[in-house]
Structure formats: C-alpha cells, structure tokens
C-alpha cells in the first residue's frame, strides 16, 4: 500500500518531510473515524439516556444493564466482536465503519451518563411547569429539558471527544490505516521508528489541544441558560 511513495533517508528532516504526506492521509482517516464515532456516540448515548429514564421499569432496567456492560468491557473486545462475530451472522460492514461504530458504542455508554447528569441537573420546577402547561412528556424533553441540559453537558462531552481522538489508533488493529498504523508500517519498512512515531505523537497533541480549545470556545459562546431548539 506504500507504492508510489518514496522516502528520503538522507537526513532526519528530509525523512520526516518525505513521509508527511502519507501520515497526513492517515490524519484524515483519524479525523473521519472520530467524527463518525462521536456522532454515533451522541445519538446512541441520548437514546440510552432516555430509555434509562423511562418510567417503565422493564425498559429502564435492561438499559442500565446494557450501559454497564458496555462501560465495563474493553473497547478492543467490542471492536473484535463487531469485526469478527457480526460477519458470521451475515452483517458485513466495512472495516472503517466497524471501527467507528465500536468507538461510538463504547462512548455512547459514557455519553449516556453525561446526558443523565445534565438532564438530572434541570430543576424539578421546570418539569413541573411543563406539566402544568400540559406539555406532553416528549415535548417537555424537546422544548424545556434537553435545551437546558445542553450547556451543562458540553464540557464533559468535550473531554470525551479528546479522549476518543486518542482511542482511534485502535482501529489500526482491524486494518483501518489511520496515522499510527501508517507510521508503524513506515517504521517496519525503514527500520526507523523515531521520526514517524514522533510525527504521529505531535499530530495527536495538536489535534487534542485544538479540539479542547474549540470546546472551550463553544462553551463560552453558548448561553448558560440553555439553547432553544426548533
């Protein structure tokens, strides 16, 4: 898969410069996996959080079990499960999608806790006012509760975003060639690991720091009282 690329081993700098294009291709895969995985975790996490809060115990209780199960098993186990077990039952997903899904599922369990904490922090009086105005439960969530929970959950979500970025190298195990996987291959071919791995480390540092900064800016930009949806 390295055909067409040439590395220049004449000096460390020249080597770094020559492998940068390959590593940057890996970076786009890292970014795409994070974006898709994070989107999955936001959606699945919200679903889990709402089911967990359902009045009916036969819904809430199994959901709690599922969340606990996901949280307490390693990401790698879940990834292998999706990658090796699902195909046996006829579900064949591309490796990239499988990887993003594994990230999304694992983080959805954390996300559901973030949502839960945010939803619980909305004062009881708000929910009572919604009931007194005869808003349905679904409408109360949409118009009153979730909008007020959002400013409370964004900081915690930001932490998980950064954390997920740093978990993406695990996808290299199921053949998704993101940054780390490519760096390792380059190292294997050239027997020079220092430069490619340092390069990847530096890119992760930049990525994590800019994500954290973006989240802080978002936090400041949003009104503290809540974001009306519609």
């Amino acid at each position: 898969m390295m055909y067409g690329f040439h590395w220049d081993l004449s000096s460390p700098l020249a080597f770094a410069w020559s492998i940068l294009p390959i590593i940057l291709i890996g970076l786009t895969v890292t970014l795409e996996a994070t974006a898709l995985g994070f989107a999955f975790s936001l959606i699945i996490g919200l679903g889990l959080a709402l089911l967990r809060r359902a009045r009916a115990r036969w819904i809430a209780w199994p959901t709690a079990l599922v969340i606990e199960f996901i949280r307490d098993t390693p990401l790698l186990v879940q990834l292998f499960f999706l990658y090796y077990v699902l195909p046996q039952y006829g579900v064949l997903l591309p490796a990239f999608l499988t990887g993003a899904l594994a990230l999304g599922v694992q983080y959805s369990a954390y996300m559901s806790e973030v949502y839960r904490a945010g939803l619980d922090a909305v004062p009881r009086g708000q929910i009572e006012a919604a009931a007194a105005l005869n808003l349905s439960r679904a409408r109360a969530y949409r118009s009153i509760i979730i909008p007020q929970a959002i400013p409370r959950i964004i900081p915690a979500m930001g932490n998980y975003l950064v954390s997920m970025i740093k978990d993406t190298p695990i996808l290299s195990i199921v053949t998704v060639m993101e940054m780390l996987g490519l760096a390792r291959i380059i190292g294997d071919r050239t027997f020079r690991y220092l430069i490619p791995l340092t390069l990847v480390g530096a890119l992760f540092l930049i990525l994590s720091m800019s994500a954290a900064a973006a989240v802080r800016r978002l936090e400041r930009a949003l009104p503290k009282t809540g974001i009306p949806l519609r």
Binding site: Q126, A129, Q148
Partner: peptide, 17 residues
C-alpha cells in the same frame, strides 16, 4: 391538565426562552 393552571412560588419560568 387542560382545565387547570398553576402559578408557582418560584415562578419556574423557562430561562432559555
């Protein structure tokens, strides 16, 4: 609920609206 309304001690206005 369609026949009853309530005014609360702590107002409970929706702060984001």
């Amino acid at each position: 609920r369609s026949r009853v309304g309530m005014v609360f001690q702590n107002f409970n206005l929706f702060p984001h609206m």
